[in-house]
Simulated scan of single mutants.
Amino acid sequence: MVGRTHFAIGLASGVGLAVASGNPDDVGHLGLTIVAAGIASIIPDIDEDGSLINNFIFPSLRRRYRSFTLAALGIVMIALYLVKDLPLWVLLLGIFSAGVAYAPHRTVAHSLFSCAYVSWITYLIEPFLTTAVVVGYLSHLFADTLTSAGVPYLWPYKKKFNLRSIGMKIKSGSKEDRLIGNLALLLASLGFVYLVGHIIYNEAIIAGWF
């Protein structure tokens, strides 16, 4: 699926997580949860130079230079960790950046291993956001499972899993792809409005406005 669809599904997943966790009582935490899930939902496509995540990270850089730059940044982070007293997540993020820079599309970055690895980095940076990142990342993998290409969940085992056996074989950029993205964005928007309204209502009760 295209990046916009993945991002919309990620946002909707973040809203769903907020609802499932008992409705947050803080707009800031709500926003961080949704944004973290949205960003995590496009990370798996970092192995594709023209992807949404790479357009976001390297907006002014030509596609042909993006893999090299990502790998170089990773190497620099690893080097800085070795010579400076930096947190462990700097090393792990550097390894991830260098490792996926030239990886073929839909391989290591589209796996449960990568999801766990990115979630570990997130936990070291900000534990509160870990669940949102897991949910967002998995939303990408599940969405790509609906496509004919499938997803190598168990990488380095190369088998790609999909739902073609039950007729699910959506093509990236197709009408179905765009429809799913639009519906996900609508659900995310409605859910966000509901949650913000819930927070405002609770604060009004506490303040004695009702």
Rank of each mutant, 00 (worst) to 15 (best):
I199V: 06
L52A: 04
W155P: 00
T33R: 00
I42W: 02
G208Q: 02
H140Q: 07
E203A: 11
L186E: 00
F58V: 09
W120V: 14
G167T: 02
M1N: 00
S67R: 03
V135M: 09
K169H: 13
K171T: 15
G3A: 01
L11K: 06
T107P: 00
T147V: 08
C115L: 15
E176R: 14
L187H: 00
F210D: 10
F192M: 06
A37Y: 01
L17S: 05
V83H: 08
A98M: 10
F128T: 11
A132I: 07
S172F: 11
G28V: 09
R66Q: 07
Y137E: 08
I180W: 01
V133F: 08
G167V: 07
I199K: 05
E48L: 14
A132G: 04
L179R: 03
R62V: 05
L11G: 01
F56D: 09
D85Q: 13
N162W: 06
L70R: 13
G150I: 12
S172C: 11
L190Q: 09
P59F: 09
V193P: 01
W89E: 08
N162M: 07
P127Q: 02
V2N: 15
A12K: 01
Y137T: 12
L186H: 02
F161A: 07
E176M: 15
G28I: 10
I125E: 01
G38D: 12
T107E: 13
F96I: 12
V27A: 09
K84V: 13
L92G: 06
S174T: 07
G14T: 04
I125A: 07
E176P: 14
N23L: 15
L30V: 06
Y65D: 05
G191P: 00
I200D: 13
A12I: 02
I205T: 10
F7V: 04
H29N: 14
F113K: 11
W155I: 06
V118H: 10
L112K: 05
F58N: 03
G136H: 07
S111R: 08
Y157V: 14
W155C: 05
Y153G: 05
I42R: 04
V151K: 04
L112W: 06
G10C: 06
L73K: 11
L32H: 09
F96E: 14
M1C: 03
G208S: 00
L61W: 05
N182H: 15
G28K: 13
Y157D: 13
K169L: 13
L185K: 00
E203H: 15
L146W: 03
G167L: 01
L17P: 11
L92Y: 07
S111Q: 08
L124M: 02
R62Y: 03
P152Y: 09
